[in-house]
Structure formats: structure tokens, C-alpha cells
């Protein structure tokens, strides 16, 4: 997995490439927490180039969402493929996150 971080106005956009799983989840967590510590509050994580996420990856997203909310911010997710949507629906995490079709929608009005 690798990820690219960019800015769009006040929003930090993180585009994940590859699987988000137990072996690499801490890299993403560390990067987002660095940005949070640096004052960023609005985050979009885009999964347009992600095949699947395991339970550890889902757990990291839950943990990050909580930490961001505690700081008065918000984490949105975008571009989930059918497999990822299935995993979010099975775990009911689709009820916890604002999930948009693509990153443009996520950035809209953020």
C-alpha cells in the first residue's frame, strides 16, 4: 500500500493505493494523526485504487474517525468499489461514515 496526500482548500485528501490491511494500517494511521496534530480537521480518504480492506484496516478507519471527531473534525470516505461497500455494509460501518461515490462529492461543501 502507498498513499498520496494533497490539499483541497481546508480539506486533506488521502488517496490510498493497494490493500489496507493488518500489515500496513499503521502507516495510514500515523500519517493522518500527524496531519491532525498539525491542525488539519477535515479529511477525505479515497479508495479508488484499493482492492480490499481487512478488519484491521476497518478498525483503523473507525479509530481515526473517533480521534478526528474528538478534535471537532470529520472524516469522509470516497470511491469504495463493490467489494469494499460489501465489507462496510456487512460490518454496518456504512452507518458510521459519510461515504460518497467519488472524491469530488466528498470535497463538495466540506
Amino acid at each position: 500500500m502507498s498513499f498520496q496526500v494533497s490539499r483541497s482548500g481546508e480539506v486533506t485528501l488521502i488517496e490510498v493505493e493497494g490493500q489496507l490491511i493488518v500489515g500496513n494500517r499503521q502507516e495510514l494511521k500515523q500519517k493522518v494523526l500527524e496531519q491532525l496534530d498539525g491542525g488539519d480537521r477535515k479529511f477525505v480518504i479515497d479508495f479508488a485504487n484499493t482492492g480490499y480492506i481487512d478488519s484491521s484496516g476497518l478498525g483503523v478507519l473507525v479509530s481515526l474517525s473517533k480521534k478526528i471527531r474528538e478534535q471537532g473534525g470529520e472524516l469522509r470516505l470516497s470511491s469504495l468499489n463493490d467489494d469494499l461497500r460489501t465489507l462496510f455494509e456487512l460490518t454496518k460501518l456504512d452507518t458510521l461514515f459519510r461515504i460518497t461515490e467519488n472524491k469530488s462529492q466528498a470535497l463538495e461543501g466540506f
Partner: peptide, 22 residues
């Protein structure tokens, strides 16, 4: 059950559930 309201915000505990679902 990690999908229950009291567990939904936990950061772990979904692995076995996913196995059973899939």
C-alpha cells in the same frame, strides 16, 4: 457482535465476524 450499537465504534473485533459472514 461488532455490529451492535455498543460495539460499532470499537476499533477491533471484526475479524471473526467477517469470517463468519463471508
Amino acid at each position: 457482535d461488532p455490529t451492535r450499537p455498543e460495539n460499532i465504534t470499537r476499533s477491533c473485533g471484526r475479524g471473526l465476524y467477517l469470517m463468519r459472514q463471508l
